Measured scan of single mutants.
Amino acid sequence: QVNIAPGSLDKALNQYAAHSGFTLSVDASLTRGKQSNGLHGDYDVESGLQQLLDGSGLQVKPLGNNSWTLEP
């Protein structure tokens, strides 16, 4: 069960990665100043990332080996 409060997208993504045990490689300029609506409930990694990114204009991309990145 994930419980991440709304706020900074950077912070939300870092909390989610730490909670879910995956690696997220992101260029900080992509997420700077963006906000997230947070995340509450049970999600697989990709669904949770998509939910956190909702409205940010960013997309999640798998890199393999439980690693992910973001792209515009």
Rank of each mutant, 00 (worst) to 15 (best):
P72L: 13
F22P: 08
D42N: 14
S20C: 15
D27Y: 03
V60M: 11
N66W: 05
V2S: 04
L63A: 09
L63E: 06
L39Q: 02
L70T: 04
T23Y: 11
H40D: 08
V26P: 01
D10W: 14
G55R: 05
N66I: 00
L9P: 01
N65W: 07
N14C: 15
L52I: 09
K61W: 07
G38E: 02
L58M: 03
W68R: 04
S20P: 06
E71N: 02
K11S: 13
L13P: 00
N14R: 15
L30K: 00
L9N: 01
N37L: 11
D54V: 15
L53F: 01
K11W: 15
N37I: 09
L70D: 04
S20E: 13
K11N: 13
S25C: 15
Y43M: 07
W68F: 14
A18S: 10
L70C: 08
Q35H: 13
G55F: 03
G48P: 01
A17M: 09
Y16T: 03
T69A: 12
I4T: 02
Y43W: 13
V45Q: 05
D42E: 13
D42H: 14
S36P: 01
G21W: 04
L30G: 04
T69D: 06
L30I: 08
T31S: 02
K61I: 12
Q59G: 08
G64I: 02
S8I: 06
S56M: 09
S47W: 06
G7N: 07
K34I: 10
S36H: 05
P62R: 15
S67E: 14
H19N: 10
A12D: 02
D27N: 09
T23Q: 11
T23S: 08
T23H: 12
D44E: 08
L49T: 00
A17S: 07
L63Y: 06
Q51L: 14
A12F: 06
D54P: 05
V45C: 08
G21T: 00
A5L: 11
Q51I: 15
S25M: 15
Q59P: 01
S36L: 02
L63D: 07
L9Y: 01
K61H: 08
P72N: 07
D27T: 06
V2L: 09
L30D: 04
E71V: 14
L24G: 07
S20L: 15
G64C: 07
S25R: 07
G48V: 05
A12Q: 05
L63M: 11
Y43V: 07
L39Y: 03
L30Q: 04
A5Y: 09
T69R: 08
V60Y: 10
F22M: 09
S29Q: 10
Q59L: 11
K11I: 13
A5M: 10
E46P: 10
N3K: 10
G41C: 07
G41N: 02
S36W: 02
S29Y: 10
S25D: 12
Q50G: 07
S29P: 04
Q35D: 08
Q15N: 07
F22C: 11
A5C: 13
L70S: 03
G38Y: 01
A28Q: 11
S56V: 04
H40V: 14
L58Q: 00
S29T: 11
G48E: 01
V60K: 05
L13V: 02
D44T: 12
R32W: 11
L53P: 02
H40M: 12
W68L: 06
P6N: 04
L39S: 02
G64T: 04
N3M: 11
P62I: 09
G33Y: 07
T31H: 00
D27A: 07
G64S: 06
P62T: 10
L70N: 04
A28D: 10
S47V: 09
E71A: 09
V45P: 07
V2A: 08
R32S: 11
G55Y: 03
Y43A: 03
R32K: 12
R32C: 14
L49W: 06
E46V: 13
G64K: 02
K11A: 14
L49R: 00
L53S: 03
G7A: 07
N3Q: 10
S8T: 10
S29C: 15
G64W: 04
E46M: 14
D27R: 04
G38Q: 02
K11G: 09
P62V: 09
H19F: 13
E71R: 00
D42Q: 13
S20A: 15
E71S: 07
Y16E: 03
R32N: 09
P62C: 13
L39E: 01
T31D: 03
N65A: 09
W68N: 04
D54E: 15
V2T: 06
N37Q: 12
S67R: 12
L24V: 09
E46C: 15
L52C: 03
Y43L: 05
N65V: 09
L13S: 00
H19P: 04
E71M: 11
D54H: 14
L24I: 14
S8M: 09
S25L: 15
E46T: 08
A18L: 12
S20M: 15
H40W: 12
P6V: 05
Q50F: 08
D42R: 13
W68V: 06
V26C: 11
S20Y: 15
G38M: 02
Q51M: 13
V26E: 03
D10T: 10
